[in-house]
Design a protein around this nucleic acid. Structure first.
Lengths: 185, 185
DNA sequence: TAATAGTGTTAAGAATAATAAGCAAACGAG
DNA sequence: CTCGTTTGCTTATTATTCTTAACACTATTA
């Protein structure tokens, strides 16, 4: 049932020892029994996130920091598909390559627009250039006074300073992969 | 039992809907029953991390990304104590302010050295300046040909290009807060 | 030696989460 | 309307985790 490359037990043990805590001491701080710590560290039980929160609070470390495997994320090069960070809301999903782009020249997004999704009345504007390809579904793109419906395989390129707007007019989900430079979105 | 400000159920629901999935469809992809999704989203049950992994894999999103609340971490200003990222190993714990420092001028560390901890024979060198204060315990700091034992309240400042070495000669844990600029450590 | 306190581990119940199945409401098609 | 489908939610049973209490081992002390 365990297949991920992330060894939860090992990581907990490392963090606990790194902070000079015994299983019993951590257990006391966390408000759980010492057996839990032992079993978790041996991967003999998979804690509920509630319990995990309590345990990590005793170290202390946040759940977020605990799972961020990028222990030395100085120059991260590879990102697994499911590791993209969601920065969207509503019915438009933006999955971004990397988290902090302040040092980068390029922002790559994996976008998914649900049927009817719309970036809204107030048109978008930012100081950059933007380009991408439609992967599936269809998209109505408005750039300045131009408007066109793009389908899978179609692409676009425009100066982001021109007011623009996205809409999914179809009944299916639309998927886009886009790039933006510099990342001012 | 739930006290954190992180609403797991709400977040799962948001991510699921953002990707246009029903509870049943997500359940099928994840290989769990639909009731699990329902109960988790209502915060009526706290999933084990094993189950959570499976569920998130069906979206898909990594556990790491799921818990990283910094959805728009563009300019993160405040960090909770337990949110510092551990970059240490062995019996020296380095908890760093922020993850990706490639755009920053300053690296701040919360260090904990277990009794006997030592940065090792081969002395450290890097292109920056370094300073800090001992919070508790005691530290033997060697910089070039100078060596001194610092106790709580003592401080240090030196050019990191000079070979240096840390050691905890005491029987108690030693805690230091240090800064490094630029962050080349 | 014996005693005491520390470590991690393990085996019983008690508490909790996951499954399978069924419920009611909303929706579109015929 | 009626049918079929989908939605999310709830309940009884099964499976898992958590607690309590013990065990074995080490190190220190009397």
């Amino acid at each position: 049932m365990e297949d991920d490359d992330f060894d939860l037990g090992l990581r907990l043990r490392a963090l606990r020892q790194l902070n000079g805590l015994s299983q019993r001491e951590l257990a006391k701080r966390a408000g759980v029994s010492n057996a839990v710590i032992s079993l978790i560290e041996q991967n003999k039980s998979s804690p509920s996130v509630g319990v995990l929160k309590k345990v990590l609070a005793g170290i202390p470390i946040s759940v977020s920091a605990f799972f961020s495997e990028d222990l030395t994320p100085r120059q991260k090069v590879f990102y697994r598909a499911e590791d993209l960070t969601e920065i969207g809301s509503g019915n438009i999903s933006y999955r971004q390559v990397g988290r902090d782009l302040s040092d980068r020249a390029l922002q790559i997004l994996h976008e998914k627009l649900q049927p009817g999704a719309d970036t809204g009345e107030t048109l978008l504007r930012h100081e950059s250039e933007e380009s991408g390809i439609i992967v599936s579904g269809e998209i109505e793109l408005t750039v300045g006074d131009q408007r066109k419906i793009l389908k899978a395989g179609d692409a676009f390129y425009f100066d982001s300073r021109i007011p623009h707007r996205w809409r999914n007019p179809g009944a299916k989900e639309a998927v886009i992969i886009s790039a933006c430079t510099p990342p001012t979105f």
